[in-house]
């Protein structure tokens, strides 16, 4: 006979098990907290570095203005990243949406509301295009959306050049009622509430997370994968359109660089906020918003500190590595599929 009887339910072993469980739960809690800690760290460090200037009334409005676009887009992107998708066309499609709206406004024939609505349809169409490339042409979404991004950038450049030599403007003062802190706050709250509701309390969000967790399981459990993937992209498109509208009236015009870079900013926000890039159940809208806030406050605060542009980029990049390095869940696969 080998050794003596060991029991799993002995006092000592029960204690050890409790300890291990506690440790595991703690670890998970810490992982979840890191994006928040990163946010708090950024805010506190910058408040000190700017001598409190970060929270001057004036600058708070700036932070709202500067983070507005990214937060809206991040809320929309939650639905796409939750199911494991991505979309690199958002920058170019935002620019195109702005172009369409400006052209309609300048034509003086279309009511403003109709122009805005048509504008929103542009990114919806482009995002759905990305979805269709992935779903029906079976092109990996990374490749498909990168390709569509190039096409859209080309189209934007072409239409801008042909019709306006690179720049189209509208009167800033005529549209002040849209580029207005109160309106923006209202829209922001509305988008976040709508996003949160759809994400947490309807099939659109719930099924997106299941699809992100395991597409085969979702399919074989009767989830209409194509339908929910497309829904996610539609919502992203709507959000990009809304963001484009405000971006347009803020700049009172559109140029070929309008919206450019949004797609990469978005990835930074998603990763910094601790939103799993592969999607799945750990996807939470709040993480996407948190990421957008962190990125925007970081940019704003570092500008306030009057740091050299290269150092700003360096700090941003390193913080990105640290936060993502600490919080990213490696068990769920590669960062970019």
């Amino acid at each position: 006979m080998d050794g003596k009887q060991v029991s799993r339910t002995s006092e000592e072993n029960v204690q050890i098990q409790k300890q291990l469980d506690k440790k595991a739960r703690q670890k998970e809690r810490i992982m979840n907290l890191i994006p928040y800690a990163g946010f708090v760290f950024v805010v506190v460090a910058l408040t000190i570095a700017t001598g409190g200037n970060l929270f001057s009334a004036n600058n708070l409005a700036n932070i709202l203005n500067q983070s507005f676009v990214m937060i809206i887009v991040a809320v929309g992107a939650s639905f796409v990243y939750a199911h494991g998708g991505m979309d690199f066309t958002v920058g170019a499609s935002m620019g195109l949406a702005e172009f369409v709206i400006v052209t309609m406004i300048l034509s003086d024939k279309v009511p403003l509301a109709a122009a805005l609505l048509t504008g929103v349809l542009v990114p919806v169409a482009s995002s759905v295009g990305v979805a269709c490339c992935a779903l029906y042409l079976k092109i990996p979404v990374f490749v498909g959306s990168l390709g569509l991004r190039m096409v859209l950038m080309g189209v934007l450049n072409m239409v801008m050049t042909n019709s306006a030599n690179g720049q189209l403007n509208i009167s800033y003062n005529d549209y002040r009622f849209i580029d207005n802190v109160a309106v923006k706050l209202l829209v922001l709250v509305a988008v976040i509430v709508a996003g949160y509701y759809l994400f947490e309390y309807t099939g659109i969000g719930k099924k997106a997370k299941i699809i992100g967790g395991n597409r085969t399981v979702a399919r074989e459990s009767g989830v209409n994968v194509s339908k929910y993937v497309i829904w996610g992209y539609v919502f992203l498109g709507v959000c990009v359109g809304i963001a484009g509208i405000f971006s347009l009236f803020r700049a009172a015009g559109v140029s070929n660089t309008s919206g450019s870079g949004t797609e990469f900013n978005l990835m930074t926000c998603i990763a910094l906020g601790g939103f799993p890039l592969k999607g799945g159940q750990r996807s939470r809208i709040i993480n996407a918003i948190l990421g957008a806030m962190t990125v925007c406050i970081l940019s704003n605060g570092l500008l306030l500190c009057n740091l050299d542009a290269n150092i700003i980029n360096g700090i941003k990049g390193l913080l990105f590595i640290v936060i993502v390095g600490l919080s990213y869940d490696r068990s769920s696969g590669k960062l970019v599929s």
């Binding site: 309390y201 099939g203 099924k207 967790g213 085969t216 009767g222 799945g280 750990r282 068990s331």
Partner: peptide
């Protein structure tokens, strides 16, 4: 690989085929 979402909770795994039935107005579950 095909039957359950390993990274998902027990609840969400059980609910996948059930959600459609629980849906109320405006998709509320």
């Amino acid at each position: 690989n095909e039957s359950i979402v390993l990274t998902g909770s027990i609840a969400n795994n059980i609910l996948v085929p059930v959600w459609d039935k629980l849906e109320k107005a405006a998709g509320f579950i």
